[in-house]
């Protein structure tokens, strides 16, 4: 190293803190929501506008870090002049929009969407969906008793454009055996509401690995690897970012799944502590979920600029080296 004084002394402080170029000021538009006048940037969605005035709009397929796919339709609102309801999560505001978020049409659609999901999907580990269901008075039992679960692989083999006509008076569901093909996480598609979030997180919105995609069509549409091959044969790199965005527990850490199977999963006994990943130098925030002094799963907060909620296999699963065992037991 030369003896250039620069290498000995820190450089002088800049006159002004360096800042990012300021984005162009976006014009604001005036709209009304449930009779209340609101002004929001013209880049805002109806959902943004609702949230800005504290109107709690249910969402299932929406996540701040993902591109809206507007498929669950639980966020629909009524816009004056529109023939159909519109999805709040993706529709941009337009000047003069008059929006109803709680009209009878809106309430009916939300209730029905939740009934459709409740009658076809196991929502037992989807607290948000259950809360919405009770909020909108959804009664999933109206469609009859659930049909028996499909055999392993049977739903994955269904061909588009064909289904067996209803032979019984039972309601069709997506029930099927849980897929366990690796030690890190399980896929229980009986709990899948097909919100596309995992596909987006595996794809261009975060991981860009494209190990999974939506396959099949209609009610037989499903999340699948190519040809339904097991994850270890697929492109999966076990970042677990799909688990991070799954709203229903269909994708679950094996550690959580095993504890639940044993009846030992107890969120009341758990703590959640944010720290920084011990591996490479990127500095990802890890939220450690700890039960009985054991890390039982690792998540990452969405609002951190470093990760946007995403991790890699080491950060998500590589904590085993500190699990020396419970000191109370040894």
């Amino acid at each position: 190293m030369s003896d250039d004084s620069l290498w000995f002394r820190p450089p002088p402080r800049p006159s002004h803190p360096p800042i990012a170029p300021t984005p162009v000021e976006t014009p604001r538009v005036e709209i009304s929501i449930d009779g209340q006048a609101v002004a929001v940037p013209d880049t805002a969605t109806i959902l943004d506008a609702c949230r800005s005035i504290g109107i709690d709009t249910p969402t299932l397929c929406y996540l701040e870090t993902l591109t809206p796919v507007n498929v669950c339709r639980v966020c629909v609102v009524e816009v004056k002049g529109s023939r159909t309801l519109v999805p709040a999560c993706s529709r941009r505001v337009e000047p003069g929009m008059e929006i109803q978020t709680n009209s009878p049409r809106v309430q009916l659609s939300r209730k029905m969407v939740l009934e459709f999901l409740g009658s076809s999907v196991d929502l037992s580990t989807a607290p948000t969906a259950l809360e919405y269901s009770s909020r909108y008075g959804a009664n999933a039992g109206r469609y009859g008793p659930a049909k028996e679960a499909a055999l392993a692989g049977e739903r994955d083999a269904r061909e588009p454009g064909h289904h067996h006509p209803p032979g019984s008076l039972h309601a069709e569901t997506v029930a099927q055996p849980v897929k366990i093909d690796n030690n890190l996480y399980v896929r229980d598609y009986s709990k899948c509401i097909l919100c596309y979030k995992c596909v987006e997180a595996c794809g261009t919105d975060a991981q860009n690995t494209f190990a999974i995609a939506v396959a099949g069509r209609g009610f037989d549409a499903r999340i699948s690897t190519e040809d339904n091959i097991p994850l270890p044969d697929s492109a999966c790199v076990y970042c677990g970012n799909c688990i991070g965005v799954c709203p229903t527990g269909a994708l679950m850490f094996k550690s959580e799944y095993d504890l639940r199977q044993r009846g030992e999963w107890d969120e009341a006994r758990q703590t959640k502590t944010d720290t920084i990943c011990p591996y490479c130098g990127v500095g990802c925030t890890l939220s450690l979920h700890v039960q009985d002094n054991q890390i039982v799963k690792v998540t990452s907060p969405l609002d951190v600029e470093v990760t946007h909620g995403n991790l890699c296999i080491k950060g998500r699963f590589g904590y085993g080296f500190v699990q020396g065992g419970d000191p109370d037991k040894e």
Binding site: T275, I276, G283, V306, G324
Partner: peptide, 25 residues
């Protein structure tokens, strides 16, 4: 990173808090 409190600094010079989440063996 998980059995003590302190800070680390990442590749974008960000000083970040690490926190104790579990007791060491």
């Amino acid at each position: 990173w998980c059995e003590s409190d302190g800070t680390v600094t990442n590749s974008e010079r960000r000083v970040q808090r690490v926190r104790k989440a579990v007791n060491p063996p």
